[in-house]
């Protein structure tokens, strides 16, 4: 469903070049929920923008459902890291969720159904007429998620969506995402820097190295499909997986630390 082939991205400034990601290759099957972890600044957002067709990779390619990505793909939605700025403050919650559907040229009835359904799914049916800035951070993030699912995407990309909310809200939102994923059967790529979150949410965890960024490891999460904040997180297997991902990230860092003095 989602194919990332040898993606490299170099930002070219005036007199400076930043190689944000070096060589990323992985593949998500239809309906898969994969988490992508990596240290801050390793190029997760950059990769997401390449997949979303907002940035052109310097080399390599991305395919969604067998079609090469050259611009934003029609059946993909993105939830951005900065959800506050991603919501349009001049539109109501309903307006925000509905705007992409208007561009999809859906009928008014169909739009209304999708908006209502999406807002209900994230538990915000009562706030449809509010403005995003009248809501709490966690609610705003749910609006962004509602907008994404109302678009009926086959692929959903999320960039550290819960980085800025408190622990309790975060746990609720994690369960919300798993619920939505099961209900709407989308392919989900969930970016986070939180190892616990990655293991708890994903069927698979892709570990990125620190810069120069490559895929360090690809861990299958063989936890039961029904997950629960309390029991899953205290599961023996959860702890093992978490330790594995953790040590891979450490390896990635050490690998770089070991090679850095040699380079200078």
């Amino acid at each position: 469903m989602l194919d990332v082939n040898g993606v490299q991205k170099i930002y070219r400034g005036k007199d400076r070049e930043v190689e944000a990601v070096r060589d990323l290759t992985f593949r998500l099957e239809e309906g898969e929920l994969a988490c992508l972890v990596g240290p801050s600044g390793c190029g997760k957002t950059t990769l997401l923008k390449c997949i979303a067709g907002l940035l052109k990779p310097t080399s390599g390619s991305v395919e969604v459902a067998g079609k090469a990505v050259t611009g934003p793909p029609r059946d993909m939605s993105v939830v951005f890291q900065e959800y506050g700025r991603s919501l349009f403050s001049w539109l109501t919650v309903q307006g925000n969720v509905e705007l992409p559907l208007k561009e999809k040229k859906l009928s008014k009835e169909r739009r209304r159904t999708l908006v209502t359904e999406a807002l209900e799914a994230v538990g915000l049916a009562d706030s449809a007429r509010s403005y995003p800035w009248q809501l709490s951070g966690g609610m705003q993030q749910r609006v962004a998620i509602a907008r994404a699912i109302a678009y009926e995407p086959r692929v959903l990309l999320m960039d550290e969506p819960f980085a800025a909310v408190d622990a309790q809200t975060r746990a609720d939102l994690e369960d919300l995402i798993r619920g939505l994923w099961q209900r709407f059967s989308m392919t989900v790529l969930f970016i986070t820097h939180d190892i616990d979150e990655a293991v708890y949410l994903g069927q698979r965890v892709l570990v990125l190295s620190s810069s120069p960024t490559v895929v360090q490891d690809d861990v299958a999460v063989d936890l039961p499909a029904e997950r629960d904040q309390l029991t899953t997180r205290s599961d023996q297997r959860f702890t093992e997986l978490r330790a594995r991902v953790y040590s891979e990230i450490q390896n990635a860092k050490n690998g770089q630390a070991a090679s850095a003095p040699a380079a200078t």
Partner: peptide, 29 residues
């Protein structure tokens, strides 16, 4: 115009004119 707002609009397939109408105009208002 906030680049995140603009990218959001682009990612949802809003074309140039639609972005001017729904994003640039309200931001500039």
């Amino acid at each position: 115009v906030d680049p995140v707002a603009d990218q959001t609009a682009r990612s949802y397939g809003l074309g140039r004119l639609a972005r001017i109408r729904y994003v640039v105009w309200p931001s500039a208002l």
